[in-house]
Design a protein around this nucleic acid. Structure first.
Lengths: 140, 140
DNA sequence: TATAAACATGTAATTATTACAAGTGCAAAT
DNA sequence: ATTTGCACTTGTAATAATTACATGTTTATA
């Protein structure tokens, strides 16, 4: 059931624990770009002893190890994405939903500082903002 | 002196006030990607009655009107950029500094959802993260 | 099973941000 | 010039997100 989550943790050199597996499993099954709070509220049901601090620590760890992405597209809240293959994100300024958009690795890193610049790049994010089709209708 | 700031406000349809002009002037003269607090602390000297709420309101207004950019590259703090022409941003994970990198409008919007998708795009941000040349040296 | 290291927990503190009500000052109209 | 209204600013208080830290628990290994 949670084998995929466990494997992902091992793959990224993260020591597995009940909580970490559950959180990774949640990320992999819910592509809703959840916040810390959303993950906490959802998992608190199954694991009543889970603390919010653990969710903070764990998601931060995942992001540091490259097992998940930390998204800062919405200034009001940080959210997370279990999909680490290259893609872009879109934030609707009306409903606040975050959408995925296809973008190749090549496109993500177009114009990115090269090694010669002396900068070492570890991640790239492409964020679009505007209005999703649903909200666009409502507004007109 | 602050004519450029005043003109920018008028250009973006923002009613000028002493505070708004001073804040825009600060943004235009300091390309340091300041936070609300940094702007507040700096200007509080010249304008002792300036309140932090006003800085919040004003920078938010600038961003909404397109007269400045709100950057969410650093999850720890929102910062602002008075340069609204297309370019990318780089955050050093060690020292926390934000650097500008050249990027054409075309490159910024590579792979961006088209009108046919039903999405309306109002802004795009390209963020890189890693280690700047200074910090890279220290780490090795 | 003893021990140490790694993890998780909960509370409290901190910080960033927003809400809101009251005050101020400019600008148009009389 | 004076009044009136509106936009803007202010300060305080509330809210929400995040972090620090000390304690407790689990896990792995000898």
């Amino acid at each position: 059931m949670m084998d995929s989550a466990l494997n992902t943790l091992l793959e990224y050199g993260i020591h597995p624990s009940v909580q970490r597996i559950a959180i990774m499993d949640y990320l992999q099954k819910h592509h809703t770009h959840p916040t810390v709070d959303e993950v906490y509220v959802a998992l608190h049901q199954e694991i009543p002893t889970l603390s919010k601090t653990t969710v903070y620590n764990t998601l931060k760890l995942f992001a540091e190890q490259g097992a998940a992405q930390m998204l800062t597209i919405d200034e009001r809240k940080v959210c997370f994405d279990g999909v680490v293959t290259p893609h872009a994100h879109f934030l609707c300024k009306d409903c606040g939903k975050v959408f995925d958009f296809p973008l190749s690795e090549e496109q993500m890193y177009v114009g990115c500082p090269t090694k010669e610049s002396g900068f070492e790049i570890t991640e790239a994010h492409v964020y679009y903002k505007g209005y999703c089709s649903e909200c666009k209708k409502k507004r007109s």
